[in-house]
Amino acid sequence: MGSATPADGPLVIADRSFASRLIVGTGKYRSNAEMVSAIRASGSEMVTVAVRRVDLDRSRDEGILHHLDPAEFFLLPNTAGCYTAPDAVRYARLGRAAGLNDWVKLEVIGDDRTLLPDTTATLDAARELVADGFRVLAYTNDDLITALRLEDAGCAAVMPLASPIGSGLGLVNPYYIREIKRRLEVPVIVDAGVGTASDACLTMEQGVDGVLMNTALAAAENPVGMAGAMRLAVRAGREAYLAGRMASREIAVPSSPAAGMLE
């Protein structure tokens, strides 16, 4: 008998470890109850949240802390919606001031049609936030050079996209993602663009440390069902990567013996 799949360790980022390699967002769900059910079904321990103005004219329980217990989930504040480094730094500091942790999912957008990152501004903000004591998990393009610079800047993890945020286009450039993973020492989390379970599985098969997604769950017909599928897909992709896939070839090789056929 062959040996079992090599044992996988936890996802370790900075000084924390996570049993799940799936990180999920909390936006765009139809209800808070559905969001919490989906997150639980995903098995994720780390979930992202956004920083926004309190709506002074509406109900008082719209804040996400009324629905997500920071003792159950590790909440990762993001800087989504920021288009400049100073804005991202401001939002990161507001998130930290909530008092949960000093981590931030850094995101500086450069274009509102593609939501592609402004990598120069992302680097500027990353340097400032690292100097200010943050654990920075930086959303970025699938560009090796930027990824290397973000690592040099002291980011705790680098998070290249699979494809544009909310697009569901899946992993458009597996080669670039593999190369980023090969060249960085800090964890590489693929963030954004995953649409369905096969995308998540394929992404994990590239050897990356984790996947972050939001819309794939929130916009599924059944978010809880999709969350369960993503949990399995991330696990399957990781185990397939660890097991080592066969070489692919463009000619068939029979699986049954050529010898022993009848006359």
């Binding site: 765009k28 949240v49 956004a50 920083v51 926004r52 309190v54 804040g63 998130g95 909530a98 939001n214």
Partner: peptide, 10 residues
């Protein structure tokens, strides 16, 4: 004043 809190986001 800016009064902010956490909301759902990705």
């Amino acid at each position: 004043f800016e009064l902010v809190h956490f909301v759902g986001g990705g």
